[in-house]
């Protein structure tokens, strides 16, 4: 019982007594708070924050793409133009391609070129054989 009395007395005293500061101290505190928020920007609404984030991400992506494009242009300055191979080109003996379609086109062209050359070679050999046969028959 005595314990409850003591408890109630202490709690009611604590309730009634508010920790406080002097007016000057509260004024100083308010001034410090105002200084603290002077250069502090308020957080935006979540939707606005999301829009800003998306726009920033898009801008960064655009920048990356732009840089890649610029680098590609620089790289293409050294390209050995080849009318047969179209947009496929060679640089330091490595085949550069811009798409799979181009690569397929490149090899198709390459193989057809090989076929043409071998056909010419065959034609030349046949021609040589014919010349030799004509010479032999004339003799």
């Amino acid at each position: 019982m005595e314990k409850d009395e003591l408890y109630n007395k202490l709690v009611s005293t604590l309730q009634a007594t508010k920790p406080s500061l002097s007016l000057e101290e509260f004024d100083a505190m308010a001034e410090n708070i105002m200084k603290g928020i002077a250069n502090k920007r308020q957080k935006q609404h979540p939707v606005i924050t999301a829009i800003i984030s998306i726009c920033s991400a898009a801008a960064i992506l655009l920048l990356v793409l732009l840089c890649t494009e610029v680098l590609q242009i620089n790289e293409r300055q050294d390209v050995t133009k080849n009318p047969y191979f179209g947009i496929v080109y060679r640089k330091n003996d490595a085949v550069k391609i811009s798409s799979l379609q181009s690569l397929l086109g490149y090899y198709t062209q390459k193989n057809s070129d090989k076929d043409d050359i071998s056909a010419i070679v065959k034609k030349y050999i046949n021609k040589e054989k014919n010349n030799t046969a004509t010479q032999n028959s004339a003799q």
Partner: peptide
Amino acid sequence: NEEEAKDIVQETFIRAWTFLPK
């Protein structure tokens, strides 16, 4: 603690200002 309480009150209001839109 009076000094700690002062600091925390200041931090509380600065946070309140920052996050007021929320």
